[in-house]
Computed example of a mutant assay.
Amino acid sequence: MSDDTEHAGFYESLPRIASFAALTRDGSYVPLPDGWVIGAADIVGSTELIAEGRYKMVNVIGAAVISSQINADGRAGLPFVFGGDGAVFACGPERAESSRQVLGIMARWAQEEFGVTLRAAQVPVADIRAAGLDVRVARYQAAPGLDYAMFAGGGVTWSEAEMKAGRFAVPLAAPGSVPDLTGLSCRWNNARSRNGVILSLVLQPAPGASLQAYAEVADRIVAVAERLDRGGHPLPPQGSGVRWPPPGLELEAHVSRGKSSLAWRKVQLLVENLIAWVFFKTGLKAGGFDPVHYAKTVSSNADFRKFDDGLKMTLDCDSGSVAEITEVLERADADGTVQFGLFEQDEAMITCFVPSVTQDDHVHLIDGAAGGYARAAAQLKSAAP
């Protein structure tokens, strides 16, 4: 077997872990092979954009970083983590150059399509290890047809910090470059909290803290979440519903128009979404598409909790659980074990990547609808020494 083939098969060969709680343990993770790279991107000034009410746009651009990479590769199995205003992912050396080019295209597209600056970097795992850190990965089986990557080792956080410092930067692609964002959409309604609060949580080990002590805190937070209805899942079991015209029409037109007219793409989407709305409202099946099954799969496939050198969760909480989580985190922060950010809002939002409506591997990225992870992370940064 060639080296490239070995690299291509590495992530697919990892076992799927069914227990989210097991992901607090370091033994669940496997080091990335030598030669791999970390891709990272985030939006400059996302806090200001959120204050202007443009968070759904911020969210969609973050999701577009992921969908552009998956579409360019032409195969599933990309290890990634969605962070609200950006994303990180890993790829082997056989994909490094094409991945770098796609990041440059994404940065150019974000600038030209939305007038925002998307930072993008590609960091060799070798440089991460030379800095005394690592990147280890696990696969969490969120649903029968879908799993998500989880990261540990400190290397992802270090890579993002290096990117924000201007190192390992990916250059902009040529003007007019457009990424392939086929399958990326934002058609679902926001999901209103059923228990009182949609809580966005970002938790990281404090510098110099014992990783064992940090893991114990993460265990306690996960345990509180597990006691909530459906583990704090922010979406109803049958999905959050659709309406016509869809709330994300303008954004989806920008994302899917390629080089065509924005106005014409809106007309096309109005027709497409009307047809979809009829199917979801009536429950009628068409070929291999079953709208009732699809809506349930949206909920089961939702990416509402993750590890990327820390814990991120979007939870539907009651006030008592919010108070308990806050108390645990404040005590751990006071003894120097963790850094954390919490942000409360009324709704969760969904951004989707759907390669096929007849398969069960569609990806649904969840965040708080009023700032979510970005606002929680901003609190974490302000608390950092």
Rank of each mutant, 00 (worst) to 15 (best):
R230F: 04
V58T: 10
D361W: 04
G372V: 00
R265T: 12
P93K: 06
L184W: 10
W264S: 14
E347F: 13
V338S: 04
S99P: 03
L103I: 01
N59R: 08
Y294M: 12
R129H: 08
L249A: 11
D367A: 04
V328G: 01
D134T: 06
V178Y: 13
F279I: 11
A334D: 12
I105C: 08
C186Q: 13
A51H: 13
K164G: 07
A126H: 05
D127P: 02
A40E: 02
P246D: 05
T337D: 06
A276W: 09
H233S: 11
A370L: 01
D219N: 13
L133Y: 03
R257V: 11
K312L: 08
I61F: 11
A64L: 03
G336S: 04
N71T: 06
Y294K: 12
A263Y: 07
L228Y: 04
T282D: 11
A40R: 03
G372Y: 01
M1P: 09
N195K: 13
V30W: 08
E48M: 09
Y214R: 04
R25L: 03
G53V: 05
Q268A: 14
S256P: 05
S319A: 15
V156W: 02
V197R: 06
R25T: 00
Y55P: 02
T47P: 00
R75D: 05
I350K: 03
R305I: 05
G132Y: 10
G283K: 10
P124D: 02
A323Q: 15
R243G: 15
A191Y: 07
V156K: 00
R16K: 13
P236S: 14
G231Y: 03
C186S: 15
V242G: 05
R192F: 15
A369Q: 05
A87N: 07
N190E: 13
E330M: 12
S185N: 11
V224S: 05
V58D: 05
R227M: 08
F151G: 01
P385S: 12
S382F: 12
F151D: 01
D309L: 00
I17P: 00
A174S: 15
G154E: 00
Q238H: 15
T5D: 13
G35Q: 06
T358R: 13
G62W: 00
G115P: 11
G196Y: 12
C91P: 00
A21G: 12
R75F: 01
V292Y: 10
R139P: 02
A143W: 09
E330N: 13
K306I: 02
T337C: 08
L184N: 01
S319R: 12
G77N: 04
S67C: 11
S46C: 05
P246N: 09
G232T: 08
